[in-house]
Structure formats: structure tokens, C-alpha cells
Design a binder for these strands. Structure first.
Lengths: 138, 138
DNA sequence: ATAACTGCAAACGTTTTGCCAGCAT
DNA sequence: ATGCTGGCAAAACGTTTGCAGTTAT
């Protein structure tokens, strides 16, 4: 891997990637920071952000954009959708197929050169359904 | 309108709503701040945020979440999708229908109580297609 | 009198940046 | 020697909050 000119695969780079990939939830930068710090205690938060940005550019990690709250990251770069619990903020993968002809419908409706889409569902996770009353995410 | 107990329709409230609705693009809070300030020069940015929050709660305005950049607001609260230009950041409405059975497919794939979804397309707007090289959004 | 709202400024949390040292090439 | 990278700390950014004064009920 890492074939771009002048790109070094450092320890930090590798460990951060490993941790995004092994995280069960879709971690935010500061959660990742904690996780990686247990392996590289001198790591700085700035480095986490810098490396996540690099990993995204290399297509090894995906940003999950949800403005207003924190950005989250996903080590699974296959096309897939997410569902987010509106109570606790948890984000999970949702293994469903892209609807047929979705982007074609978009192309028919606009002059944009359509390059992709993002589909996110909202709902209440099983745990929150049962724990009736909880603190909202933020 | 405005029938909740203890909710006042102030000048700021009304003008902010008018400006979200008349804005051609989907404005961010600070763009709105500028627009409204040309009509109410002493208005503060805090008031813009507070009123946008109220307007969202009343269902008169919709937040468009795109983390990493700013939050944007939409005076059109009908169900509709958006397309965003990956070069210049412009957000426009996209008048297509929700795919049939989309949320049902999600329900089948998860234990969440699915309450909604958000679908956003990405692409390159006609203007950017022609102006070949431009500054990226941020 | 009470409660809702405003302007202003300070505080907040997240992300980005500048700087200098270290290390791989 | 060069240049990418890291740690650290400061800055920047968008957003929220506390406060004191104002206005409508």
C-alpha cells in the first residue's frame, strides 16, 4: 500500500487505521484519540485529525458527516448506509442495497453531474426503546 | 399561526423567517445574519441562532446537517432532497420522490424503530462544470 | 408582576494551524 | 540535506450561554 510519493506509513498512521477498523461503533476523533493513546501514549489529538484526513484522502476511511455534533469516522469504505439513534447518537451500519435507479432519478432532475449520494436513516435503537427515558445526545 | 402559550412573534422572529424563505440558496446562520442585519442593523448573531432553533421546533424551518462545514437552514419544510456541489458547496433542492419502500427496507434490516431518513446527493453544479478550476468549498 | 425576548460578550467544544524537533529517505 | 511527520500549544471556527435590560402580556 502507500504508493504515493512522499507518504510515510508511520506507526501512528497504522495504529489509527487499525483502531478505526476495529472500533465497533463509529468513533469520533476524541474517542479514537483515547483508544490510540492506550497504545501510543504520547500521541496528540492534532495527529489524530491529521492522519484521519490523510486516511480519508487515501480512501481508507470514510467521514460520516453529522453537523452540529461531532464528525465520526468509519473504517468500512464499502458503499453502505447508516442509521443513527436520535436519542443516544449511536451510529450503526445498515446492510441494505441502494434503491434501483436512485442516482439516475437524480440525474434526470438536475443539471448537476451527479457523483454520489449519502443516505442516512434515523430512528430509536433497541436499547433506547426499552430504557424509555434518557438523556438526549447533546 | 404562533399558538403555543408564551411564544412571541417578534420583529426579529418574523424577519428571520422571511429571509430564510426568500433566500435562494440554503443559507448558513452567518449568511442569514448578514441578510437580516440589512433590515435590522442591531440584530445579534445569538438571536439568529436562537430564533432559528425556535423556528425549527415550530416546524417552520428545517436544519440541513452537513458536518465539517456549517449548518444550513431551509425555509422549505416539505419532504424533499438536496444536492450539494462538491466544488463550491452550493446546496439545491432536488425534486424527486422518495424511493418506494425505502424505510420499509430499513425496518426489515434493523431492530431500530425507524422514524425517518435523509438523502443527499453529491455532484458538480453546472457552473463549476464549466469553470473547470475553482477553489474547493473549505 | 411575570415571562419571553433581545443585544452583547464570554464561554464552549471541535477542528485546524504554526512551530520546531525528529526521523526516514 | 531534504522533506514528511509528530508533539505541543495556540488559534480559529461555528455555536451556545449567561447576564442585564426591554417589551409584551
Amino acid at each position: 500500500m502507500s504508493s504515493q510519493p512522499g507518504l510515510r506509513m508511520t506507526q501512528q498512521h497504522r495504529v489509527i487505521l487499525e483502531e478505526v477498523r476495529t472500533a465497533d461503533s463509529h468513533p469520533a476523533a476524541d474517542e479514537l484519540y483515547e483508544r490510540v493513546r492506550s497504545r501510543l501514549p504520547r500521541l496528540s489529538l492534532g495527529t489524530v485529525y491529521r492522519n484521519l484526513e490523510l486516511l480519508c484522502q487515501q480512501g481508507l476511511v470514510q467521514k460520516i458527516e453529522l453537523a452540529g455534533s461531532q464528525r465520526r469516522f468509519d473504517g468500512n469504505v464499502q458503499a453502505h448506509y447508516h442509521i443513527r439513534c436520535v436519542r443516544c447518537g449511536l451510529v450503526e451500519d445498515l446492510p441494505i442495497q441502494p434503491p434501483d435507479g436512485l442516482e439516475d432519478a437524480a440525474r434526470a432532475a438536475t443539471d448537476y453531474e451527479v457523483t454520489g449520494h449519502r443516505l442516512k436513516f434515523f430512528g430509536i435503537c433497541p436499547e433506547c426503546k426499552h430504557e424509555a427515558h434518557r438523556e438526549p445526545p447533546r
